[in-house]
Amino acid sequence: MSEALARLKGVSRVYQKGKERVEVLHELDLMIPNGDFLAIMGPSGSGKTTLLNLLGGLDKPTGGTVTVGGAELSSMSNNQLSKWRSTHVGFVFQFYNLLPVLTAQKNVELPLLLTNFSGKERAERAAIALDIVGLSDRAKHRPRELSGGEEQRVAIARAVVSDPTLLLCDEPTGDLDRETAEEILKLLQILNREHGKTIVMVTHDPQAAEYASRTLHVDKGKLESRAAA
């Protein structure tokens, strides 16, 4: 297996709910190699999304270390994490999280506002990203004029437009019908195989997990490994 892109060592995440102490992740170890397509499954509240957020620098562990691409996220400030996210990681959400006031093209351009690209370069790169997800003809449409599957494609284009190594997908097909879900999963597979993106996908759906190269199960804050289909 190739070298590690991400490594979690003894990672714990404890939330304080009033006086109650909730341990979502418990001393978890995980290595994600470069080029992996990893599905994370588990029941609700098992800590899947927390794990994803830790990998994406959206949350910090209360114990242990999270290292992604050589950067130790657990010791970075919020500002540093923002900058890091803009170049190293792309997010795909269950409900797409597109900005309704912007066209598909402008939504995809958003992450490029954090770079030094000129307006023309931003437009070009967004067009390429939309082409990869097969939505070049929908560039001028706003999210409400798109179907759920199309919205998720735009969201994926937005996630890859700044060419991050790591894609984090939180239930990317959770809001889609079976057929559309398959299209999205095939797209993710292409991004993994042909564009070399490392993908970590949280899902409830065993059929979705089958598109990944391996699946891990999280339960009560701990990992259990099973062979991928």
Binding site: N79, S82, R85, P111
Partner: peptide
């Protein structure tokens, strides 16, 4: 809230 959280996830800073 949703928009702010999304922008922050994309890498927009708190400032």
């Amino acid at each position: 809230g949703k928009e702010i959280a999304t922008l922050r996830a994309l890498g927009f800073g708190p400032i």
